[in-house]
Design a protein around this nucleic acid. Structure first.
Lengths: 239, 239
DNA sequence: CTTACATGGTTATCATACAACACTGGTTTC
DNA sequence: GAAACCAGTGTTGTATGATAACCATGTAAG
């Protein structure tokens, strides 16, 4: 035995990985509402884990309302797939693929937000962004204060889009990303990096102030790319 | 054994009851953040259930972010009750500005999703998209079936990005948008429009099949622009 | 045709064992 | 005396097998 990390690679708990897998099958439509899931035995066999692990995974999905099960019959995909809330499982984020996906999603939103902000920002928006940047300049790199103002800067950019939901979504995603980064302890500290990061922010700000959407997009893309490197996410993206 | 329903009376699953009990302990402050939970053995004994049931309960609480556990150490109450949910107020969406914002957000995601899908789609993804398109062709324009497969098509595109959260986010946003459109009853019916819409979808599919990200982006943009017109959202976007 | 029973399959739960890991305390080594 | 090593103990993580409760289905008896 002992080789259990073939189908699902070691990371968090096995039950988490199994739950994510099933969850994805549902999200991507390979398992449709009303469908019956394979039996616990079969699932255990296909994932190469014990039936116990499968049960823990199912218990979670059940609590999330994604599936329901009945003794003697089986487990089924729930009809009503989405309520009015969107949740992101914290544990699932421990997987590199999940984190990467969320990072990518964040990137899409940030980049487009920067472009929109360049076209719509008001004078007040600019003031807020500049303030955030100044505060960040005074905070030691990597400190809690620094991270806070970093997030604040991005928030002001999102707000400048004028889109009522941009801030909400972006902050929601960013918070999850930040948590994961902090949890992994994957940070380097250096004064050089502080200067680089500040420079990237400045470039974004300049582009937004100039009203140049394309340049803002590029600047934000460059910034996120740099951030990914600093966090050790380099080169994992194909192409 | 066989007498297991003393402490927790029979209702749903035992693991649910145990999870609720622990959850209550936390909510009422008898277990404070940072505190270590009793061992699984002790919990099993206290509740009069097997350790297995306790583990399922803990798995749920862990996925909810209420507690965390580490092998060899124990389980602890989490510091921050993670706000891992995002909600959109339905009533707020009645306002035009809110709806427009959400529509814009959806557009950003859809457009970039199409571009990513063009680069990453597998053969299965293409098959799924084509299936959805065929089904839509057979459904009468504006019917429930038609709307359903329309959504399904966009879902397959999102799935083709390979991004684990793209489907979740996009469907969440799209559902809200669709609800609002249905509620407003703002639809026109016409066979011409059906053909136009199908053509737009076909163009997206072709671009994705060809692996042309830029074209996919443009095609999706055109489609959403057309959809906005059909819903009566024309010309409200500055720029 | 209806009812009762038998049978197989599935989930729910229990029980036990082992592996992986964390912590503690003593022993050895320098 | 201090640091490194090591064994022991407790805890979570996982595997495995067994039993009870329950559902669905088919079959025989009425």
């Amino acid at each position: 035995m002992t080789l259990k990390l073939d189908k699902v690679n070691r990371g968090p708990h096995l039950s988490t990985l199994v739950a994510s897998s099933i969850s994805r099958e549902i999200a991507q439509g390979r398992l449709r509402p009303g469908d019956q899931l394979p039996t616990e035995q079969q699932l255990a066999q296909t994932f190469g884990v014990s039936r116990n692990v499968v049960r823990e995974a199912i218990a979670r999905l059940r609590s999330e309302g994604r599936i329901w099960s009945q003794q003697g019959r089986g487990a089924f995909v729930a009809d009503q797939p989405n309520a009015t809330t969107l949740t992101i499982d914290y544990e699932a984020l421990q997987q590199a693929a999940a984190f990467q996906s969320l990072f990518e999603l964040r990137g899409i939103l940030e980049v487009e937000a920067a472009a929109l902000a360049a076209k719509r920002r008001t004078g007040d928006d600019l003031t807020a962004m500049k303030d955030a940047l100044v505060t960040m300049r005074d905070a030691p790199y990597g400190s809690v204060m620094w991270l806070k103002t970093d997030l604040e800067f991005h928030k002001t950019v999102a707000a400048a889009t004028g889109n009522l939901y941009m801030v909400q979504f972006l902050m929601f995603v960013s918070e999850r990303v930040r948590e994961s980064i902090l949890a992994s302890g994957n940070q380097q500290r250096s004064e050089d990096l502080a200067a680089v990061t500040l420079g990237e922010h400045q470039r974004i700000l300049d582009a937004i102030e100039a009203g140049d959407g394309d340049e803002a997009r590029d600047a934000m893309r460059a910034h996120l790319h740099g951030a990914a490197n600093r966090v050790g996410l380099a080169g994992e993206q194909p192409e």
